[in-house]
Design a protein around this nucleic acid. Sequence first.
DNA 1: CGTTAGCACTCACCCACAGAGAGTGCTAAC
DNA 2: GTTAGCACTCTCTGTGGGTGAGTGCTAACG
Lengths: 346, 346
Amino acid sequence: MDLNERKLRILQAIISDFIYSAEPVGSRTLSKKYDMGISPATIRNEMSDLEEMGFLTHPHTSAGRVPSDKAYRLYVDNLMRKYEIPEDEKKLIADKLTSNVIEMEKTIQHAASLLSELTNLTAFAMTPKPETDRIRYIKLMPVDDATVILMIAAESGKVSNTALKIAVPYNEEGLEIIAKAMTYSYKGKSITEALKLDIIKTFESDLEAMSRLAQNIMPNFLRTLERMLDVNLYMDGLTNIFSFPEYNDIDKAKVFLQMLDKKDYFRDILINRDNGVIITIGGENSDEVIKDCSLITATYHVDGKMVGKIGVIGPKRMKYDEVTSIIEYITENLSNTFKLPGGNEQ
Amino acid sequence: MDLNERKLRILQAIISDFIYSAEPVGSRTLSKKYDMGISPATIRNEMSDLEEMGFLTHPHTSAGRVPSDKAYRLYVDNLMRKYEIPEDEKKLIADKLTSNVIEMEKTIQHAASLLSELTNLTAFAMTPKPETDRIRYIKLMPVDDATVILMIAAESGKVSNTALKIAVPYNEEGLEIIAKAMTYSYKGKSITEALKLDIIKTFESDLEAMSRLAQNIMPNFLRTLERMLDVNLYMDGLTNIFSFPEYNDIDKAKVFLQMLDKKDYFRDILINRDNGVIITIGGENSDEVIKDCSLITATYHVDGKMVGKIGVIGPKRMKYDEVTSIIEYITENLSNTFKLPGGNEQ
DNA sequence: CGTTAGCACTCACCCACAGAGAGTGCTAAC
DNA sequence: GTTAGCACTCTCTGTGGGTGAGTGCTAACG
């Protein structure tokens, strides 16, 4: 049995119909609504074949057909047509993502919010894994008698700072010397390298006079540095899930929301995905809890290197064509925005 | 008709029972379970009185009684006994909130997470309104040919920074001069004052040679400054609502979650609440959407001045005694943690 | 006169059942 | 190969009786 032209047309019609209606689709509906020039009975025969081939399933004997994961996969890989994003949406995206060129975190949050708004799904965005980022310099600035701000700047422009409480007396010159020494030691090192370096010892002896002050600073330095490795995860449109009838079941909604509520868990799922636009449908997801969902992620670039992710999660029955187009468009815009030499902020 | 001893005892029993069971409580159950030495019939008479006085309601003719908002209010104000927090929970709170003395944002997030975990409700925490905070200094630090980091430090230790793209050539000295000039102009001003000041003009003429550079920096400065006024809102335990049977109704759960999803809306509700421990029950809330919920908020202090909020939201039927004790204990710990002269972080 | 037992009444909830509607699978005719 | 027809299946909806928890009233009790 092969997947001939007619079978494909029928399958496509079933998928499209189901994506919009969420109802199992029957042969009569199909023949009437899609005007394919063949009778319901013929369609039934073809459907039966398609079911045997694993593209359709049957919730129960006398219900219509529902596409299987395999069918969605075929649809996404071959049947789906390119969706043209309306000009006004394109404009909206471009506007929102370029207005504030360099505020990376804010821009990424905006991207997630936009994505959720345009697709009516739950969207998320993750800041880049900053593994390749390098330290540019370290500053120590006094606030008052007991408080000093430690600031670490990376080449990408990312900055991390902490206010420290210092238990010993100090003056501005002392801080400056330490900061310079630290910058000298760490400059150009990647963050992960820097975390491994054990230069505290040598450092302390080099600056005998300051050693007590330095002792106060170093542990905090490492912690602040560690925080630069943090990957932030933003979510938007969590409650969009309620607009899908398949989530009218309270238990399903609960499981879905609880899964997203455990941010660490979800972050891990995202981190482990490949780069580029990746669509995983239902059971293709390795994680049991999202086997009823489809997950679409795409990667954007910062300065051509560091890679962050953005995407949506929702029911398997989603408008794959529309959603992938929008995600692609948004990641393009993000990558452009974050291209360092570009961006002509006034 | 007055609220005699016996009526109070019955009311208290009804409230306690309903808080635990979520079921309307009837006269027979009450007389059996609480062993009050009077018959169901007598209890019925008293209940009828209590209903007339507005403390109880009737979902339908033949159901048990349910406490009204007025009853909860009476309970909270007079009947409720002090709840003793178990030592292990106290220890947990103290540990989690003092480990990392100065990272305010992180500590506040931890507080919300703890609160949600201990109460099994949806918890939130808001960073302080920084209105009274004052600018300490402004720094400009070069990253590369086109990027400069603008950093504004406030007296509280709060820091805001942005990476700027600069369209004109510059050198480190130029940046330093501008930063010094800016610091001179803004130092000691509150953030809101600073935002109102229109010193760009004078500033530009003062530094004729640098004016183009300054022009690049000032708009960003104002934006970065504005961001210092941002109040961050953290939430935790969003899906705890599902553990309450009254939210098994999908529509109720939906309304609840959608309300919290609109963070700006919820933040406004919180900002407008008074300081101290405030309990608002059901209809006492001015906002229609939360008239089925109770909201408990408390304020913590930073450096004795700036005031942030933390609290929980959940069904009217909540363990007010337990929850208020825990919130109070957490705010005490937070305030201690944020007391500037204290905290002996190594 | 407050308290209690008894009793009729009221609902919500559960369950079983019938009928409608949508859809299938099979068969036989075109 | 395609189609019409038909019996069959299964979900969904609405209905009606039974059950149980609870009330409100009345009359009796101490």
